[in-house]
Write a protein that binds this DNA or RNA. Structure first.
Lengths: 226, 226
DNA sequence: GTCTATAATTAGATAGAC
DNA sequence: GTCTATCTAATTATAGAC
């Protein structure tokens, strides 16, 4: 930190801050653009325009298009996973069914707040690519490993329905994320507006009821016995 | 029909047939390419290469990229709807639950045979466009209107779970199509290969069990009464 | 009905001034 | 850290020979 004090040193810090803001704006614009048009379908010029900066700045801050994609994806997915694990943490003392229910609700709510995340994921999953490999390895698989184990527990307790846990996990996931990613089309074909918060809650509730039909605690055991 | 008989007339018919085959090859290649890279992300040259024809032929047969997209989409979606309504027709004499179950199974099976259809739909739904409007108006909405009515009936019979029918319809839809469209990613993150026919059947069965938990006929009425 | 050649536009990326 | 200018390649689309 060779510019801690003295006169005429503020410009440097101001530049740093501007640089950070430019990075942020580019990341936000990139996420939006990539989620709408896919990797191949978006031009770096479009991203620069959305961010309100000149396009050579992308090269300056992120080296190239691929790195920009990765940075943008990493940002949302990290945010998403953190929020999900936080919801799980907060529900640590709950009964197993309620803990999973809270995670599902957190999942649906975040998906609805950041539809770009699921749009991005769907765009990239339509074809194998280094980006999909990276996404699976860095974000999707780690989350899967954690959650599927809890789902299996819920299955043995009779709370989640029987069957392949991998199938069950992914059904819950696409039921949440897919609905959000398709929100535009769903509104047009069936008049259901998933941007309204109460509709989002209805969606979360329906998913919980569908995928966790069993009950918690003694009631569940009793129900199975009798 | 000025070439019904006589010698030296076969070349004309041969050319016609080649033209038809070229159209077909272009339509198939276009569906594949668009489903993988989205509309903006695919070049007409890529489509021509996949089809093994020279790219100016696209202009010749389809005028431009947009019309080619429309023709390709129209082909699969027409095929898809026809197959679905046929399944419904064949199950006309079944009890209501089994009729809907057969439609769901037909839906999942076709989705798995033609993953490009759902990939295309997901790609286009990420942003509003004249293509999405067209898709909704020509294919999605008509199918929705028919099926949601039957779903409502199943709800009043206690076979389908209660709640907003639009929500229920779309959940069934994305549970089927979304899983298929995401097959690549799902295989990599959770080792579940939805290209295997028996996995597809398991998926269909699980969807039927989840979304049609009630029973048919007198049993259902008895179950609700007692 | 098919091809070559090409026009007009837009893409990703870089060089170098400031 | 930011900008203008520009290179190279790829894009959609068309014109016109065969």
């Amino acid at each position: 930190m060779q510019e801690a004090r003295g006169s005429g040193r503020k410009p440097a810090r101001k530049q740093q801050q501007r640089s950070i803001r430019t990075r942020q704006k580019l990341l936000d614009a990139a996420l939006q653009a990539f989620s709408e048009n896919g990797f191949k379908g978006t031009s770096t010029r479009d991203i620069a325009d959305r961010a309100g900066v000149h396009h050579p700045l992308i090269t300056y801050h992120f080296k190239n298009k691929e790195e920009l994609w990765r940075a943008a994806a990493d940002k949302v997915f990290s945010e998403f996973t953190a929020l999900l694990l936080q919801a799980r943490q907060q529900a640590a003392d709950f009964e197993p069914r309620e803990r999973m229910a809270e995670m599902i609700r957190a999942y649906v709510r975040y998906a609805s707040r950041k539809p770009a995340l699921h749009k991005l994921m769907l765009q990239e999953s339509s074809q194998s690519s280094p980006r999909l490999d990276w996404l699976v390895r860095m974000h999707l698989k780690p989350l899967y490993e954690v959650v599927v184990r809890e789902l299996e527990t819920l299955q043995t307790m009779g709370i989640a329905p029987p069957g392949d846990p991998a199938l069950l996990f992914n059904l819950i996931r696409v039921s949440s994320g897919g609905m959000i990613a398709l929100a535009l089309e769903i509104r047009d074909t069936s008049g259901l507006d998933l941007e309204e918060p109460d509709k989002v809650e209805s969606l979360a509730d329906m998913i919980v009821d569908l995928f966790l039909p069993g009950r918690d605690g003694a009631a569940a055991a009793a129900a199975r016995a009798g």
